[in-house]
C-alpha cells in the first residue's frame, strides 16, 4: 500500500491514517442508521404482506416490471462504475476519476428519469393511492396498501438516489477542476459506500415490489 493518503490532517487527529479510519467508520455507522430508517418501512411491508398475501400478489402484478428490471440493471451498472471510480481515485488518475464519476451520476440520473416515466404511467393507470385510486383486483383496499408502501419506499429511495447523484456530480467537478482528491481518496471511498448502499436497498426493493406476485 504505497498510496497512504497525504490529506491535510485535521487538528483532532494524530495522523492521516487515524483520520481515514475514523471517517470510514463514521460512514459505516451512518449506513447502519440508514438501514434502520428503511427498516421501519420494510417491517411495514413484511407485516402487511403476511396479513394479506393474496392482495399483495395481485397488486404486485400491476407494477411495471419492465421499468423495474431496466432500472435494476442501470443501478447495478452504476455501482460497478462507482467501484472503478474508487479505484481510479486510489491510483490518483484524476481524469479517469472525473469521467467515471460523471458516468455514475448519469446512470443515477437515468434511473430517476425512468422512474419518473414509470410513476407517470402509474398515475395515469390510477395506481396512485388516494381518492382516484383504481385497481381491478379482488381486494382493492389492501392492494392500495401495497401501493402506499410502493410509493413510500421507492419515493424515499429515489430521494436517496437524488442526493447521491448531486454529491457524485459535485465530487466529479471538484476532481476535474481542483484535483481535489489527489492523495486523498477517502471522500471518494465514502461516496462509493453510500452509493452501493443505495444500490443494495434497490436490490431488496426490486423483488419485493415487482416479483412478489409473479413467481406463481
Amino acid at each position: 500500500m504505497p498510496e497512504i493518503a497525504l490529506a491535510p490532517v485535521e487538528h483532532q487527529f494524530e495522523n492521516a491514517e487515524q483520520q481515514r479510519e475514523a471517517a470510514t467508520m463514521g460512514m459505516w455507522v451512518f449506513l447502519a442508521t440508514e438501514a434502520l430508517f428503511f427498516g421501519g418501512m420494510f417491517l411495514g411491508y413484511t407485516a402487511y404482506r403476511t396479513y394479506y398475501p393474496e392482495a399483495f400478489a395481485e397488486a404486485s402484478r400491476h407494477t411495471l416490471v419492465a421499468f423495474g428490471s431496466i432500472n435494476t440493471a442501470v443501478l447495478l451498472i452504476s455501482s460497478t462504475v462507482m467501484a472503478f471510480a474508487v479505484r481510479a481515485a486510489r491510483m490518483n488518475r484524476r481524469g479517469l476519476l472525473s469521467i467515471l464519476l460523471l458516468v455514475t451520476a448519469s446512470l443515477g440520473t437515468a434511473f430517476l428519469v425512468i422512474k419518473g416515466f414509470e410513476y407517470a404511467r402509474e398515475i395515469s393507470e390510477g395506481l396512485l393511492p388516494g381518492p382516484k385510486f383504481h385497481i381491478e383486483t379482488s381486494d382493492p383496499v389492501h392492494a392500495e396498501m401495497f401501493f402506499y408502501l410502493y410509493w413510500l419506499m421507492t419515493g424515499v429511495h429515489a430521494l436517496h438516489v437524488t442526493i447521491g447523484v448531486a454529491l457524485i456530480g459535485f465530487f466529479a467537478l471538484r476532481a476535474w477542476l481542483f484535483d481535489a482528491f489527489r492523495d486523498h481518496d477517502t471522500p471518494i471511498d465514502l461516496l462509493g459506500l453510500y452509493w452501493h448502499f443505495v444500490d443494495v436497498v434497490w436490490v431488496f426493493l426490486f423483488p419485493l415490489i415487482y416479483l412478489a406476485g409473479r413467481h406463481s
Binding site: 411495514g44 407485516a47 402487511y48 396479513y51 394479506y52 393511492p129 383496499v141 389492501h142 392500495e144 396498501m145 402506499y148 408502501l149 413510500l152
Partner: peptide, 11 residues
C-alpha cells in the same frame, strides 16, 4: 397515507 389507519387497511 393509510399505513396505520384501520379504515384504509392499516394496523
Amino acid at each position: 397515507v393509510g399505513i396505520f389507519n384501520p379504515s384504509l387497511g392499516g394496523d
